[in-house]
Simulated assay, not measured.
Amino acid sequence: MERTRIAVAGASGLIGSALVRSLTADGHEVVRLVRRAARGADEVRWDPEEQYVDSAGLAGCDAVVNLAGAGVGDRRWTDAYKKTIRDSRVLGTAALAEAVAALDVPPRVFVGGSAIGFYGDTGDRAVDEDAPPGDGFLPRVCVEWEEAAAPAEEAGIRTVFARTGLVVARGGGAWGRMFPLFKAGLGGRMGDGRQYWSFIALHDEVAALRHLIDTESLSGPVNLTSPQPLTNREITAAMGRVLHRPALLPVPAAALRAALGEMAGDVLGSARVLPARLLESGFSFAFPGIEDAVRAAL
């Protein structure tokens, strides 16, 4: 990969910060989008909710990667927070897509964040990028999120949607919450444990994003998940083995619904998602299995 200038929105998040570290370590110039006044040439001010981007700072970028969005699991899904989840993704994507489309020399690729929440609850059925959206709040958000990138697509910019699964990492997301519980011997399956969780190691997530930037043949939706989705029961058993702790304390579905409200449906729902397009494009996973992914996170 030749040295390039890449703009990253959501650069302070779990995935964004790891991507910035990886790109910087390889000598690429990274421009971070920030919500305050820019403090140097490596920052660009933006305000996703106000749909403002200082687009002059994006000039000369070869790629723009948008990973910004309020954390889905950060708090209970009140109506107000559901609006925050949706607006932080849809309005921010629309603002960035319009900004890059208006540049005299646009970037060659726009990588938009998305999620396997697009597919909703798939039960035992394995799905790939050809599957239609599911029903419910998260599928609706994902559909709008991807549609918001239309200005970039219409301007002829190669546009890719990174439909990310559950990222196995210590620093945040579902695993950031699970590691302390399992280390304390308090881990266990959630509900009946038969729901599929489509995971990806943070290392592979970053490598896959860089693959999307580099691979000219890829556009449209690409699932960023391990090729080996497993049930929650299998994953929690693997966590117990790697951490040498019992995984015997199941969390009843009723307790999850009481604690999490509407978000419990996402935890108890099943998403058996396969990375068909990623594999077809020649991507190789470093940590495809859950035990390897957990060890890598530790």
Rank of each mutant, 00 (worst) to 15 (best):
A37L: 11
P250I: 09
M263T: 05
R89N: 04
I290A: 09
G171F: 10
D192V: 11
P106T: 10
G123M: 03
I213V: 13
A37E: 14
K183S: 11
T231R: 06
P48Q: 05
W46Y: 04
G27W: 12
A286N: 14
P107K: 10
D87N: 11
P107G: 11
G165I: 00
A25E: 13
T84Y: 04
A254P: 12
E147H: 15
V30R: 00
F137W: 08
G40V: 06
D74W: 07
L218T: 05
L58A: 01
P106N: 12
L224E: 02
R233T: 12
R89Q: 04
L202A: 06
R35F: 12
P133N: 08
A41R: 15
G191V: 02
E234S: 07
V242T: 07
R86W: 13
V206I: 08
F287T: 05
R170G: 10
V44S: 00
N223D: 05
P221T: 04
R3D: 12
K82M: 12
E129Y: 03
S219E: 14
I290N: 03
I200A: 01
A80N: 05
A184F: 13
A276S: 13
G112E: 10
H211M: 08
R277I: 10
Q195G: 08
A148M: 10
V34H: 03
D79R: 15
L166S: 07
V20N: 03
V127L: 01
R86D: 10
G117Q: 09
R233D: 13
A63R: 00
P139T: 05
G261N: 15
R194Y: 13
A286R: 15
A131F: 03
A247M: 11
L218N: 01
T4K: 14
I235T: 07
V111C: 05
R21K: 15
F287V: 09
E234V: 05
R189Q: 10
A237E: 15
G13I: 00
V222W: 01
R194A: 14
S17F: 07
G289R: 14
A9K: 00
V109A: 03
L186W: 09
R277K: 15
M178G: 07
E49M: 13
G69R: 00
E205Q: 15
G191H: 02
S22I: 09
R76K: 12
D192L: 13
E262C: 10
V251P: 03
V65G: 00
R3Q: 15
R158F: 09
P48C: 08
R163D: 02
R272N: 09
V109Y: 00
V100L: 02
V273N: 02
V242K: 06
P252Q: 04
V206S: 01
T164V: 15
S217P: 11
A201P: 09
Y52I: 07
V222Y: 05
R245N: 03
P275F: 06
F118Y: 14
G265T: 13
H28T: 09
R272L: 05
G165D: 04
G71W: 06
H244N: 15
V160I: 07
F137M: 09
G73T: 11
A18I: 05
G71T: 10
G193K: 07
V160R: 00
A9T: 00
G71Q: 08
G57K: 01
P275A: 11
G187N: 04
G265P: 13
R108W: 06
P133R: 03
L268Q: 04
D62S: 15
T236R: 02
G176S: 11
A208V: 04
